[in-house]
Design a protein around this nucleic acid. Structure first.
Ligand SMILES: [Mn+2]
Ligand SMILES: [Mn+2]
Ligand SMILES: [Zn+2]
Ligand SMILES: [Zn+2]
Lengths: 156, 156
DNA sequence: TGCTCGTTCGCACGACGTGCAGATTGGCAG
DNA sequence: CTGCCAATCTGCACGTCGTGCGAACGAGCA
């Protein structure tokens, strides 16, 4: 995703308005590696701009996604995740705390695939599931780590 | 997933009741390669057993899944899919009509992965997205194939 | 300073599942 | 064969996630 400044230019150049709500979301998503949900981003945005609508957050994220500025991901964690990282990459999800990390896979085209018959494959997504380092400490057994569920962190 | 007869034995052996509803679902899912949704299966089941509850279909599918008799899949198509094929395999989804096919991938462990840092990976799922042979005919452009949406076929 | 149409907001609604509790019934003891 | 009782089924309410809609608002320009 481009910088807030670049997005501002681009929006105005395309006859789109640059509202405070949009600017805020530009800032909150830029460089954000937390893969937040719309709801999570809304919480964070509300701290800075009380009164902002969840509907607007959904709307703006959808706009940015359709512009190719960010990718919306379904990682099977319930809600859609938004990712400003548009490079070709995949993800690993911690099944304990839900934290998501970027994973770069190379040579994926060299694997033996059977059953794609006549399908014209347009995209391939690889999803890793496991336990993150922080959740693995102490060899926790029954007492799973506090599912902090705040996997929407938003930089500074 | 085991055969209806085997499941019947197994259920009774475990003190679980073998009801007509369960038997029907055993039959409808056995060998079913359509990866149906609960709703889809419910439609089919209703033809044979009018009055069966959607709640019961959900319940029974969840039971079978927790027994390891079938896998529940989130393929990003909206509703959860149920798969009696418990072999290690992956899927390809047609983005036009929604049809799902099994895909067997080998050598997936030989690919270069970066970013898994301390994660203890427990499972990996690969999802292919593309256009199926049937939807590709005629080089259809704007007029996408009728999204028949009936991707819950149920054998005979 | 005003106008105007793109945006924002709030709320209703739709899809997908799950929790609950009363009505049923499978499977076994008698 | 009959009765019992826990397991099951069913209908409905509720919860989450996201979208449609229309009235109110305001960014950007003359
Ligand atoms: Mn990412
Ligand atoms: Mn399958
Ligand atoms: Zn974790
Ligand atoms: Zn197709």
């Amino acid at each position: 995703m481009r910088s807030p400044a670049e997005l501002t230019e681009m929006f105005r150049a395309n006859g789109l308005k640059v509202t405070p709500q949009r600017q805020l979301i530009f800032r909150l998503m830029h460089g954000n590696e937390a893969h937040p949900t719309a709801e999570g981003l809304f919480q964070t945005a509300s701290d800075v701009m009380p009164g902002i609508s969840l509907r607007t957050v959904y709307q703006t994220l959808a706009d940015l996604a359709s512009m190719g500025e960010l990718r919306s991901l379904d990682l099977g964690t319930g809600a859609t995740r938004f990712d400003p990282n548009t490079d070709d990459h995949h993800h690993v999800v911690c099944e304990r705390c839900g934290v998501i990390r970027d994973v770069y896979v190379s040579g994926s085209d060299a694997l033996h695939v059977e059953g794609l018959d006549g399908f014209a494959v347009e995209s391939t997504s690889i999803l890793f599931n496991g336990v993150c380092p922080r959740c693995a400490v102490g060899g926790s057994r029954a007492t799973t780590n506090p599912p902090t569920n705040n996997a929407q962190g938003v930089m500074s």
